[in-house]
Design a binder for these strands. Sequence first.
RNA 1: GCGCCUGUAGCUCAGCGGAUAGAGCGUCGGCCUCCGGAGCCGAAGGUCAGGAGUUCGAAUCUCCUCAGGCGCGCCA
Length: 560
Amino acid sequence: MTGENIAVFELNQALNDSVKALGIESIDAEFERPKHEGHGDRAANAAMRLAKTLKSNPRDIAQKISDKLLSIKPDFIEKTEIAGPGFINVFLSGKFYADVITDILRQGKDYGGVNLGRKRKIQVEFVSANPTGPLHIGHGRGAAVGDSVARILEFTGWDVQREYYVNDSGLQITNLGKSTQARYFELLGKKAELPENGYKGAYLYDIAREIINLEGDKFLNVNPDESLDYFKKYTADKIMAGIREDLELFRVKFDKFFPEGYLHENNLVNSAMNELKAKGYAYENDGALWFRTEETIGDDKDRVLIRANGIPTYYASDIAYHRNKFITRNFERVIDVWGADHHGYIARMKAAVKAMGRNPDDFTVLLIQLVNLLRDGQIVTMSTRSGEFITLREVLDEVGVDASRFFFLMRRSDSQLDFDLDLAKKEGSENPVYYVQYAHARISGILREYANRGGTFDTEILNGGIPSAIFDNKDARELADSLSRYPDAVKEASRDLAPQVLTGYVLNLAGIFHSFYNTNRIINEPDESIKAGRISIVKAAKTVIASCLQLLGVNAPERM
RNA sequence: GCGCCUGUAGCUCAGCGGAUAGAGCGUCGGCCUCCGGAGCCGAAGGUCAGGAGUUCGAAUCUCCUCAGGCGCGCCA
């Protein structure tokens, strides 16, 4: 029960008990929020859903359920109405809302932390950018999403491990080493060309310069093949260190950095391939090793695991890596956060998961779509080919961590995102992140002022002392209602791995708070019991906003 | 060619089987003798891309068409 709102739970329970009273098995009847004001505070369509099995008029059924509901929970329900084709519209009482608030204050920061995970092991692997260049804006979005998803899963009772897969071996690192090497030679006046798929970014000049400072020209006259390992390692380590710095600045922490090299050093790729062969999922042809993707997932063709030259493909290492996650480390679920350009790869990885004897549904890929940076309403063009891109660091320096994270999390991750740099910097209600943070700071200011004036928080309120009359006000009711639905928002975000549910929720909540503030005097309220009641509502709102922002990795400032 | 995703108000997007399709921004008009105006209130604005079906009911499910994006390497 932890995390749920007791009042909401009791109300739902009453609905289900009312349905059962008709002599029907439970149908998991639920209340929803009606769109229109006249339709009450909650509505249930249970009667319509039961009409067929009961072979009866939905409005008659609705009447029976409604009567029962009223008799079970008279103190929570002001009145009910049967409307339209058979909706049961419920108008909730002040007592209900008062109970909602007291329960939030009792639970404090645990409120909303519904235990869906039951301590099961889950891994979130994200960012995993190759150490070939600084993190760009797309990685930033992946970092924000992965980190927030991990926070949400932790809050909802999963045993979460955050991991970064470091692609520190393979062709591209060789390319990277050769690129730095070429810049090194170039700076020392020796003619050198970038390799065919070399990295053109200016940062490699910086690294080459560092190497010159450290080692001088000692590599100038030795065979480049002999010094290549040095250039590879120095460059990758240097870039990885920069990536770690950026992540720290972005408030993203990992439990483990898993190097690809570990798989090769421990022969795990070979053993994974042998297992596939033994189970009949892989076969040799034309000197290469192939996975039967055509047969297992209806792919166009089978895919190569080990090239004819003996070098394993990325697919092969990835299979070994995921085998390590699922089998060796025994994660119940594995979540990978990938760039959207990899979506063709999902089915193949699921096939591999199946081949290792695990349910492909235990493996989820979150795709991160493109971010369009906007300045002056224009898209800031980026080109990875030319090596010109906006780095995450540049954006953080310009608009800050809070605004960046909030903006990255405003849309579902698999749809494109317009990131308006000018908007992210504005200090006004047009800027969503300031709007929400301002609500939190405003409440903090009110509570500070309350304390300055000698106000104390009366714990009697926790024993049902919030006067119901407070909720005669529409804004007060709206506010309590929104707060009562926080656990549902958290559950949805956790089940769907969808932080944008929470950005949407907290934006809406902040708006409702601001309206409430404009129509309800708080510390200037002359009636002491009403004042105390309003203080408790405001405290509950602060608790929920702070909780929600924490799940997004955004600060909840006391003043701003 | 095959496959996946998207098309909802001027703009950015919610809603994904239920009652008169919502929000923010932008536009226009209001609100500070009082707790944080980084705020609030109101108005205008829509053949839910188009068409056909499924049903008591479709923006939501199915099929077709159109438009945009992406993916289909012994790349990663």
